[in-house]
């Protein structure tokens, strides 16, 4: 019991902080630079990603375990089938948010359909089933609950990084900055400094 709890805890914090998906692994950077103009939209985006990522990872895990693997077609069908599952889920979420919260829907604008092509969602889904890929540096098959905890951890890491970045960016808007650095370049340099800080967590624990 204690052992299982420890595994889940390590998995969660490993995915959220030590191997932060945005700052350490560079996956899902488009929304990171695109919607991080204000704290509010970045929180909205994080919630959307958390929802899509968790549901998509469980759906893809089940699809892999129950359909693709038994039929022996996983090796060459996993890319198209996973991306279709994710696209369908995003479509569903878009309808749901539009119905429930029109202001949130308006705030997220173009980035909601773009979650489909947010590499983070596909990356986590692929990593939770495919052996041999980087899973916190160990080749390992996740069980379903482990895959879900991993997905939630990654999404929380995404939220932490993007909200912090949005807060810094709101301040940068007001700062005097050299002309050729204004806008995107200073954003990248800020992200680099944040990444430097997150690297400090690298020795926190070993899985």
């Amino acid at each position: 019991m204690m052992e299982a709890a420890r595994t889940y805890l390590l998995l969660f914090f490993g995915a959220a902080i030590v191997y932060n998906i945005l700052l350490i692994r560079f996956i899902g950077l488009c929304p990171f630079f695109g919607v991080s103009k204000s704290i509010e939209t970045s929180i909205g985006m994080s919630v959307a990603v958390l929802f899509v990522m968790t549901v998509a990872t469980s759906a893809c895990w089940l699809l892999w375990g129950l359909v693709l693997q038994p039929l022996g077609v996983g090796e060459f069908l996993y890319i198209p089938s996973f991306i279709l599952v994710i696209a369908a889920l995003v479509q569903f979420e878009e309808m749901f948010i539009r119905k429930v919260s029109p202001p949130l829907y308006k705030a997220m604008g173009i980035y909601l359909p773009l979650i489909t092509t947010n590499c983070a969602v596909l990356a986590v889904a692929v990593e939770s089933v495919k052996p041999g890929f980087l899973k916190l540096n160990i080749p390992y098959h996740y069980s379903l609950p482990e895959a879900v905890v991993y997905a939630i951890g990654v999404a929380c890491g995404f939220a932490v990084a993007i909200v912090m970045f949005a807060a810094i960016r709101e301040r940068i808007e007001l700062a005097p900055i050299a002309k050729s650095l204004r806008g995107a370049p200073i954003g990248f340099i800020t992200a680099g400094l944040m990444s430097l800080a997150f690297m400090g967590f690298a020795g926190l624990f070993k899985l």
């Binding site: 050729s180 995107a184 990248f188 340099i189 990444s195």
Partner: peptide, 15 residues
Amino acid sequence: LFPGAFFTFGFLMAI
């Protein structure tokens, strides 16, 4: 390392 990617890209863009 990881931060280097951001720095390189940012400065490349600035140049």
